[in-house]
Structure formats: C-alpha cells, structure tokens
C-alpha cells in the first residue's frame, strides 16, 4: 500500500502537480489590480507603493519594481535577478533579468502559453521604449496605439483605454498650425491677412511717392535758375 502511495506521489510529482505553483499577479484581489492599472494609466507612480503594499512576490510587485528600477531610477542599482525560485513564473523571471540588465533590451512579452498580467504596464513600457529607441516603428495617427493595442487586455478599463488611446504623443506629430483653429483664431488670421495686404499696397504707394518726389525735386531744380 505504501508502495502504491509512493508510486502515486511519484506520478503526481512527475506531472508537476506537487511542485509549488508560481504565485501569479492574477492572485491579487481584482480591486487591487484595477487600482494599480488605473494608477499606471494616470501616471500616479508614487501611488503604486500603497496600492501594492500587500503584494509579496515579484510577479505581484512587478509594477513597483519597474517604477523604481526603470521608469524612474533610484540611487541604488537596479534589483539583481533573484536566485532561481520555484515560485517565480517564467515571464517574471525573464523580466527580472531584463530589469537587472538595465532595461535596454526590448521588454519581454508573454510567450504563446503565457498571459500578460499587467497589460497597461506592458503598453506603457513598450511605448516608452519605442519612443526612446533609435529606430521607431510608429503607427499611424489613425491607430494611435498601433501594435501596442494588440497587447492590451481587452478587459482593461474603458477609461484606461481612452487615456492611452488619446496618446498624447501624437500631439507632437501635429503641427501647431494644423490643429483645428478656433473661430477666434480664424478671425484673427483673416484680419492679419487684410492688414498685410493693405500694408503691401501702402508700401508700393509710399515708394512710388518717394521716387516721384525726388523726380519732382530734380525737375524743379533743373528748371530753376542757376546759382
């Protein structure tokens, strides 16, 4: 009987059912994850500490690690990759290595059998890397998130999508002049054009007047008596 139990346990170990499962970000309460996602989207990086205060694992604290080790930098060196840990999922392990290396390589994205636990963060990091990198592949203004949108969790808050979708970086691509002008700006521009046209005609008239005046002066002087 004992032998059978041992064999059963060996079978279970072989199947990986007895190894400790990685503690995923999804194990955080949903409300915590949503608050963290919202803080990321809204740029409240300093709020991540209190929000994720109850998180214990690297996977759960990942946004905080990125906030202090890559998005912003502390005086200390980036956190070193931890010792191999059975509780660490493969994606988090790759990301920790990425962080330890300074974050210069492309941000590790989930593999075929993996799920993105922090889609907003992934979009933000990938977007920033794209903007700061030497060779950018920009999407078109019509599709502001371009391929980043495909990486986002479709269940992300509507507001988050709106905020990222606004994608203020496209303001940089839009000429100040080509922004739709307000009615006041249109009126001011038309008035300036009228003034410029008026001044142009006046300039021609003034120059003609000066030339005419000199010609008249010469004519009168040469017709006058000699000195």
């Amino acid at each position: 009987m004992l032998g059978g139990l041992l064999a059963f346990l060996a079978f279970l170990a072989f199947q990986g059912l007895l190894t400790p499962a990685p503690v995923a970000a999804e194990d955080l309460p949903e409300a915590t994850r949503r608050m963290a996602a919202l803080a990321l989207a809204e740029g409240r990086w300093e709020d991540l500490g209190p929000i994720l205060g109850g998180a214990h694992t690297a996977a759960q604290r990942w946004p905080l690690l990125v906030a202090r080790g890559w998005w912003r930098l502390g005086d200390a060196a980036p956190p070193a990759a931890p010792e191999p840990d059975d509780a660490l999922d493969a994606l988090t392990a790759r990301r920790l290595a990425w962080l330890a290396a300074g974050g210069r390589e492309p941000y590790p994205i989930p593999g075929p059998n993996e799920r993105e636990p922090w889609p907003v963060l992934a979009a933000l990091v990938a977007d920033r890397q794209e903007r700061e990198g030497p060779a950018r592949a920009r999407g078109s203004p019509a599709d502001p998130l371009s391929d980043l949108a495909a990486r986002m969790d479709p269940e992300a808050e509507a507001r988050t999508r709106w905020f990222l979708g606004e994608n203020h970086r496209w303001q940089m691509s839009v000429s100040y002049r080509s922004l739709p002008p307000t009615p006041e700006e249109v009126a001011a521009r038309e008035r300036a054009e009228e003034l410029a046209a008026r001044n142009g005609w006046l300039a021609l008239a003034a120059l003609a007047g000066l030339l005419l005046g000199v010609a008249l002066w010469l004519w009168r002087g040469e017709r006058g008596d000699a000195g």
């Binding site: 100040y176 700006e185 001011a188 001044n199 006046l202 300039a203 120059l207």
Partner: peptide, 23 residues
C-alpha cells in the same frame, strides 16, 4: 500694426508696414 495681431501672424504685416513707415 494694431495691437491684437498674434505672434504667428505678425511678420507679414510687420514687413510691409515697416516699409511704409520707413519711407
């Protein structure tokens, strides 16, 4: 060149106006 002409629209008005005024 009356007040109210914006900075981005000023130069063409000023260029021709300066010619008139100088002459």
């Amino acid at each position: 060149l009356p007040a109210g002409v914006g900075s981005m629209d000023l130069l063409p008005v000023a260029f021709r106006g300066s010619l008139v005024a100088t002459v």
